[in-house]
Amino acid sequence: MESMLKQFKSFKQIRPDHAWLRKTKDQLMADFFVDQKSSGIFGDGWAIKVGSLATAFILAVIGTTASVSFAQNSLPGDHLLYPIKIAAEKVQFKLANNGAAKADLGVEFANRRLHEFSQIVNESSADELAKKEKDLAQVVGDFTKQVAAVSEQVNNLVVAEPSNALPLARQANLEAMKYENTLLDADKKISQTRTEAESPKKELKEAMASVQQIKADYLKVLAVLDDAQHNNLDKKNDSDQVAGDQDFPAVSQGDTGNLPSATTTITVSTTTNEILN
């Protein structure tokens, strides 16, 4: 009897996957207890107040489950799913741990806005584009905000953590070059279809200006790091001289090698000027 019972008790090994247990608990808690709050889960004046069904969509979008939400493929103009997609991004942004993580998300979200913009422009006929004027203006405006947020994070980081600012600024600069091309192509196509309407021309100009700012930020980060490096060298040389070490020559101030100084004016290319003027 004892060995049979022991064998029976080995059924205790039947247990669910730990990750599934945790995930399910989180889902259930979010479903049961989020709905009890009187304001939406996002707070801070965000527009959407969500019920349990939308919560499930949002949790899927922000990746608490392995499955990919179909809201991620939605475009401006989809009044049901697109707000959910944007709300999920805001939650993701809020949950990001630090400035660098927020900036990474900003780059990702800027990429998404630009992709959405390109998709609408490329897949719409002239008549359809005319009807989607507001959606286009909205998505370009959102793109500009994301890019501006990245620029802000870069500038914050360059003060607080200069060494961490460089990889972010470099990545943003690379993205900025792609953004420029996409914006120019889209502007050309839109120009062919419209005559007098101002938007999204105005929004495109603002977007291009924010992209130029990203490139300027990159150069600024390089200059700051270069200055810091030279300042450290100066201090080292000063202390070496006090100690009597004459092997390393002092670096003269203003000698920044091949890097431009922080006061260099950024020259805007003529093609970019076409959008800005």
Binding site: K12, I14, R15, P16, L21, T24, K25, L28, M29, F32
Partner: peptide, 20 residues
């Protein structure tokens, strides 16, 4: 909320096994 969390922690694996 708290007691549900505790109950879940205690019961989820057992319910799973029961269902399995």
């Amino acid at each position: 909320q708290r007691s549900f969390g505790k109950l879940y922690d205690k019961l989820a694996s057992k319910i799973y096994r029961f269902v399995f």
